[in-house]
Amino acid sequence: MTQQTLARPAAASEPPTDPGHRRRRHRYGERPGLAYLFLSPWIAGALVLTIGPMLASLYLSFTDYDLFTSPQWVGLANYRRLFDDDPRFLTSVGVTLRYVLISTPLKLIAALGVAILLNRVTRGSAFYRSAFYAPSLLGASAAIAIVWRLIFDNQGIVDKGLSAVGIHTGGWVASPRYALLVIVALAVWQFGAPMVIFLAGLKQIPQELYDASAVDGASPWRTFRSVTLPMLSPVVFFNLVLEMIHAFQSFTGAFVVSGGRGGPSDTTLFYTLYLYDNAFSNFRMGYASAMAWVLLLVIAVVTAALFGTSRRWVYYAGEDAR
């Protein structure tokens, strides 16, 4: 046994006759059949459920398609109409941007804050971790969005609580001023996923950096800014990109809380909600496809921009410091 184990590295680095690069290819690259066999469920899924529909929708975005009769080629008319002749489209863009800009930072701050606290908990940390993570598992479901709607509705818990201290809002769900905030709150409450990732990142920060800063007499805030944050910046970056993309695509909360209408007064008309409305209520599948591709491009551009800024503030350990 022992001998065999010991023998293995020797065997691996064995024949000098075998050039190194060929060997690597041999080991990892020359069994494509097997690889594809194991990958096949995923490949089938990707082709049928992702790539195929995407290409179809790209084609449909250049057509007038009402779901029932065959698509008519209209060139760029759908895209032109989006920007020239559809005030609700611009409304939906405004609502979505506001949502992304408010909910993403709040969610990340909440996630990081709780992660830092949990990082110090020594007893029962598994319990707290699960407890804080649970909303992320539940939160994407329609059921929770319905509960959320009831909580913030007229005569809901929040309304009754506020009324008890003399603030009458008549429910937030039906108020053009607060309706979007209800959906933001629902998103922020689901900070579990980024929190777990932050927590993993925090555990990676070498203790000696903290020891050193303690020796230097750094305040907790100073330690956070000069040690925790820079060391954690790759994780912050990762979470930022992911959560931003999620926020752009957010649908369920808005759909359920507003009863599918984006109301009141279009103040929760998310981009995806308007897209869905066009596609499935108003029989404008071609137009909706154009919207989907515009969204994809916008997300790609914003993500690329974030990557562009990352060089300035994301620090990877092992890189030369500045």
Partner: peptide
């Protein structure tokens, strides 16, 4: 090539 699977088979499965 202990587990070599013909490409044809992989394509068939997909």
């Amino acid at each position: 090539h202990p587990y070599r699977v013909p490409r044809v088979l992989a394509v068939t499965v997909i």
